[in-house]
Amino acid sequence: MQQQLASIVATAQQESAAVTTRAELEAFKARVVGPNGTLTQVMKGMAALSKEERPVVGKLINEAKKSVEELLAALLAKVEDAEIADALGAPADPSLPSPDVPAGSAHPLSRTRERMLASFRKLGFTVAEGPEVETEWHCFDALNTPADHPARDMQDTLYLPAAFRSADAPRKGSEAVLLRTHTSSVQVRTMLSRKPPFRIVAPGRCFRRDAVDATHSANFHQVEGLWIDRQVTLADLRGVLDFFVKETFGPDAETRLRPSFFPFTEPSFEMDLRSPNLGRLSGRWLEIMGCGLVDPKVLELCGLDPQEWSGLAFGLGLERIAMLVHGIDDIRHFYANDARFLRQFA
C-alpha cells in the first residue's frame, strides 16, 4: 500500500511537468483525484482494511493527498501565470515614454484671470458678465461720458451698422450699438438689475479701434470691480487694491494712488505699482489700473440714490497684468497661439 501510494505521487509529479493549460490541469486533476482517479481508487480500498490497519494506512493516504494537493495548487498558479502572461503580453520597459497626449493647459490670460478672480473672491467679489456688443447708453451715457466726449469719436470705438439688432443688448430708441470699450458696462447692468449691497468683478473682452503693435491690440481683456454699499470709502479702495496687488505681485510690492480723471469716478486715481521682482521693470512706478469712488451721477443714472448708496470701482487690463507677472514684452503673443509660448505658463 505504501509503495502503491508513493508510486501514485511520483507518477503525478512526473506527469505534472507536462501540464501547461487549464484544460490539461483539469484532466490531470481528474486522473489523480477525480472519481476514478488513482488516489481516489486507493482511498476506496480503505473500506476493505482491518480496524488496526486503517489508522496507519489513513495517515499514509493523507500524506499522499497533501502532496497531491500541493502539487495541484502549484500547477494552478503556474497555469494562471501563463494565462496572465497571455492576456497582458510581454513585460514592458517601464522607462519608455507614454504614447498618449498629455493634459493640455490653460491660456496664460485665463490663468492670470483666474488668479486675479481668486484674489478678489477672497474679498467677497463674485464674477458678473455682460454682452460684448453694447448699446451706447450702457457703454458711455450711463457712465457719465457725455455725447461729445472724445472717447466716443469714431476713431476709438468700433460701431455696428444701424441695422444691427442685438438680442442681448436691445437699443432704447435710435442709439448706436458698438463693441464695448470697457467692461464698465457690466457694472451698469449690475447696478440696474441687482439690489445693493454687492461686490462684483467683471472680467471680459473689450475692443478699441487701435492699430495692433507690441502694446496695443484691437481686442483685449479687462477685469473691472465694483462695490456698492451704504458707506464705501477711499480707505476701502486702498484696502481692496493693496490686497490684490500683494496677492498678485508679492508682499514686497508697493502701491500709490495718483490723482487722475475718469468721467465715472470722483475722486479718480491711477494706481501705480512698484516691485523689486519685475525683471527690468523692477523698482519703477508702473501704472496698472484706474480706480476711484463711483461718481454720484453714475449711481443716479443707474437708479441708485447717491444719498443712500456709495461705491468704489476699479478696472485693469488683463494683458498688462499677465505681461508684468510673466515678463512678456509683446501683447501679440497672447493672440498668436504658438505652443512654444502657451506651454511656458502651464
Binding site: D100, V101, P102, A103, G104, S105, A106, H107, L109, S110, E132, L158, L179, R205, F207, A218, N219, F334, Y335, N337, A339, L342, R343
Partner: peptide, 10 residues
C-alpha cells in the same frame, strides 16, 4: 489633452 488658445473676435 487640449491646449487653450485665444483669438481675435474680429
Amino acid at each position: 489633452g487640449f491646449t487653450e488658445c485665444c483669438h481675435y473676435s474680429m
